[in-house]
Design a protein around this nucleic acid. Structure first.
Lengths: 351, 351
DNA sequence: TTGAAAGCGCTAACAT
DNA sequence: ATGTTAGCGCTTTCAA
């Protein structure tokens, strides 16, 4: 590896001049320097620069599960923005574990200029590591309960869940099962609250056993669905609070030979790649995913550029109800489903 | 941020002693040092260490598309292994573009101790950047045509495609459509060759127009499937060479109201989360995904630990045929499909 | 415009 | 076992 001194020697100037050239200053020996750099294949050492300047030009992105399509999309959006600004991204996967997250944050703090964090849980208080890094963290998808000292990019979880509840209510369902996420996470709690609240508003009370708390994973969704179906009075409709639990629940319905929507209606939070070609095509609450990551990265980079800029922002993205075929009016009691009523094909709505 | 000198001063020893303590050497003032570190919340600067030692303790992982579930799984596996060894991973997304890849590699070379690379294409020759980094790159999923100077972790693409071809052949299909990946990528070419070869071996010749070359993306799969279906003699079975193109093709079949498998059988390379609950459940060629990433990372780390270890390895993982319900014997000519023959439910095979 | 020199935080001879 | 010192590659006063 050639160093700046090698270049200086070859070009016949001092390292100072090379440095100025590199950083866009006016320099006489421009050509000679360019040649020397070319010939030596010189690239400034990021480590040296970082040590001197105190910045790393890299961003840490911390997610609970990179294999979750939502977070994969988020990371994609974030990386694209970072690259366009010549930042690199460190990716960390916490496996939904608060302990791993704490480790990760500790390791990360000194290596990056900023952090995008999708916390595994909503900690009671801000991690000390984060506190030090204060102006350079943006929360993604999940926020901290106790503070508004940080930027965050969220989605309207309660609103989305409300849309779901309203849709099911309008179809005539009253016995509705909710497969909720963990209540100590922002989306888990938000979707739970929104859903229950909208039900209450319509005068429908959810009995405790029709609310099953899952873990945002496939297996959890599977188990919750099973429990719901085992009720003496199983629900006529089910709403799962995220993509992975939807898949798990769908598996359970499939295993139990429950027909959707004739036996029970089903919908989930977050769209799936295959949602349209499932049988039946899945009704979902959708939201911008790559955009959420891109937005978070833009916010963070702006914060780094302008540390004393505006007060922390809290950006909330809107959800959208995509009605497909997995939701329908409940079967009328006593009527057999042998000859299901023909249903008109519904178009997606564009709110 | 406290530095090592601050700690030294507080503990009443020299920086050398602190350094040795940090690096596990025997030291007298152990307690005092530990206290000082604690009190000052001292963490050694990665930049300084990196500059001095010439290592970064981080690995670059370069993939064509992080939103592709396969690569997401790979990254997950790789990151888990890296973390267990206290390495961090830089993630780069090349968007399937060779140009972006070249940029990325250039930016990466000086920032990491090693690179895991899933190239967007099979370049005619090794990138100069890579050549310099020679002993510290492992190719993942895709390899370079011209060299065996690098480690690589691959999957038996040809073998997997052969399994697919054989399965379709055994069911009695002869007019078979192949939705291939780009032929300038390892998996594209490998699966193409294996499939065509196995067909030839069985005396079945694929006519040129039954082979459609896609781009490994959903839209490409969609278009290819449409073209296949538009043939005067459309195929009775279709094999798509990766997950995303499978989804696209399935969408096309769905849009055209083609029934699977009664109208045409369908199978793809790579399993999908929802494969089992599609209607019909999808027959696929499966392979270990997270393992592929984990293996690549282990190989790379071993190479870093022991630069002059064994000769470059070429690890090839086996695929597995998962027979579900989307493949069946072709419809006998002239017979209507109104009353499809009842098919026994088949179990998955365990080779 | 340019160069000499100091220093970012750490490690490793080398000497003690 | 410990301290002194030099130096990793770069940027940045400060003087010229």
């Amino acid at each position: 590896m050639a160093t700046i001194s090698d270049v200086a020697r070859l070009a016949g100037v001092s390292t100072t001049t090379i440095s100025r050239y590199l950083n866009g200053g006016r320099v006489r020996a421009e050509l000679a320097i360019a040649d020397a750099i070319e010939e030596l294949r010189f690239r400034p050492s990021p480590a040296a620069r970082s040590l001197k300047l105190g910045v790393t030009h890299s961003i840490g992105v911390v997610v609970p599960d990179i294999a979750n399509p939502f977070f994969a999309a988020v990371v994609k959006g974030a990386e694209t923005v970072a690259r366009s600004r010549e930042y690199s991204v460190f990716l960390y996967n916490t496996e939904e574990s608060a302990d791993r997250e704490e480790e990760v944050l500790a390791a990360l703090a000194d290596r990056v200029d900023g952090i995008i964090l999708a916390p595994a849980t909503e900690p009671a208080d801000v991690s000390p590591v984060l506190r030090r890094a204060q102006p350079r963290v943006v929360f993604l998808d999940r926020e901290l309960a106790k503070t508004d000292a940080f930027d965050s990019v969220l989605v309207d979880n309660a609103g989305g869940a409300r849309q779901a509840a309203r849709h099911l209510l309008e179809l005539g369902h009253e016995r509705i099962g909710l497969i909720s996420g963990p209540l100590d996470t922002t989306p888990g709690r938000g979707r739970h609250e929104g859903f229950v609240d909208e039900m209450a508003r319509a005068g429908v009370e959810l009995k405790p056993d029709t609310i099953q708390i899952g873990d945002f994973r496939q297996e959890g969704g599977y188990q919750c669905a099973l429990r719901l179906l085992a009720l003496k009075q199983p629900p006529t409709a089910i709403f799962a609070a995220n993509n992975l639990m939807s898949i798990g629940a769908l598996r359970a319905l499939h295993a139990m030979r429950i027909r959707v929507p004739s036996d029970v209606s089903f919908m989930g939070f977050d769209d799936l790649d295959l949602a349209e070609i499932l049988d039946p095509p899945l009704t979902v609450i959708d939201r911008p995913m790559e955009e959420q990551g891109a937005l978070a990265m833009r916010l963070l980079l702006a914060r780094i550029d302008e540390p004393n800029g505006a007060a922390p922002q809290r950006i909330v993205l809107e959800t959208r109800l995509r009605i497909r075929m997995s939701t329908a009016p409940p079967r009328v009691l006593g009527r057999t489903s042998r000859t299901p009523k023909p249903r008109k094909q519904r178009k997606e709505n564009h709110p």
